[in-house]
Simulated assay, not measured.
Amino acid sequence: MEYNRIIAVTGLPGLFELVASKTDGAIVRSLDDQSTKFVSSRVHNFSHLESIEIYTQRDNVNLVDIFQAMEKNSESLPDVKNAASIKGYFEKVYPDMDFSRVYTSDMKKMVKWFEVLKKNSVAIKLTEYAEEPVEEAAVVEEAVAAAPVEEEKPKAAKKKAAPKKEAGEEPATEEEARPKKTAKKKKTEE
């Protein structure tokens, strides 16, 4: 199981693995009981753990940084029912956290999520996106520059309206000679 496929769903406890996404929701598998179900995006919001950031005294950090600090710390996880012990734990584990903006409920969630991730043996790391090497980028730019450019085709000139004919004149074109169709009015019964 990969960390980048783990999501939190509003209104549902625990964490979920994203199995498949659909236009109106997602199919998710619970990390707690391994049950699979459809979750509607009309009712719930989805948050990838990879995209969650935590407030600190300096710049925001990714949740992965907090989890990695928790992993490195030898201290046991606090009881989620005791708010003071949770705050004390995070003051030791990640003292740079902005405790005025990160609430105790958020810290409880982090502890619960960390336990679930460890229980399911999920490697806690961000997905590395491969950057395009400079040499390949230059080749692509050259190919784009060398590609033939299609010229715009001139638009067809609009037909000029035929001059109105005087009474008794012969029609100038074949189209003018054809009788014009008129719309027939439907008779309505009253």
Rank of each mutant, 00 (worst) to 15 (best):
T10P: 00
A147G: 03
E128R: 06
A183L: 07
G14M: 12
V134S: 08
V116C: 06
Y89I: 03
Y89G: 00
E189I: 05
M97P: 04
S35W: 05
I7G: 01
E135R: 07
M1Q: 06
D59H: 12
T104C: 11
W113R: 09
D59P: 00
I124T: 10
E75G: 03
T104G: 04
A8M: 14
R5H: 14
A147N: 10
K184C: 01
V19K: 12
S30P: 08
K87P: 02
A130I: 11
A123H: 10
R101S: 14
Y103H: 10
R101T: 11
I27F: 04
K160W: 08
I54M: 15
A167H: 07
E141Q: 13
L31D: 13
K118Q: 14
L18S: 09
K118H: 05
K159L: 13
S85C: 06
E151I: 15
Y55V: 04
K158H: 09
E2V: 04
D33F: 13
I54C: 15
M107I: 10
I7C: 10
F114R: 01
L77N: 05
A138H: 04
A177R: 09
I66H: 07
Y94G: 00
T173F: 10
D98H: 01
S35G: 09
R178H: 13
K186R: 06
K37H: 12
F114M: 03
K187G: 07
K181Q: 10
D79S: 14
P13W: 08
H48A: 09
K119Y: 04
E2M: 08
I86F: 01
Y129M: 04
E141P: 02
F46H: 02
F90L: 02
G168D: 08
Y89A: 03
D65Y: 14
I86Q: 00
A26L: 02
K180C: 01
F90G: 00
T10M: 00
D33L: 11
T182P: 02
G88Q: 12
Y94Q: 07
I124L: 13
K187M: 08
E170M: 13
F114V: 05
A20C: 06
V139R: 13
D96R: 13
V144H: 04
A137M: 07
N62S: 08
Y89D: 01
A69Y: 05
G88D: 12
K186F: 03
S100W: 01
A172F: 03
A8W: 07
I6R: 00
D106G: 11
E174V: 11
E136D: 12
D24R: 09
F38I: 10
V116I: 15
G25E: 00
A162W: 08
N60F: 09
I66F: 11
F38Q: 10
I27N: 05
E91C: 07
F38V: 12
A123K: 14
E128C: 00
S74F: 09
P13C: 06
G168I: 03
L63K: 04
T188F: 02
E128Q: 06
K92S: 14
D79V: 05
K164L: 13
E150S: 05
A20P: 00
K155F: 11
K186P: 03
A177H: 09
V39E: 08
K165C: 12
E115I: 10
I124V: 15
F114K: 02
A157D: 15
P95C: 08
F90K: 00
E131F: 06
V102F: 05
T182Y: 15
E190K: 14
K181H: 03
L77P: 05
S76H: 06
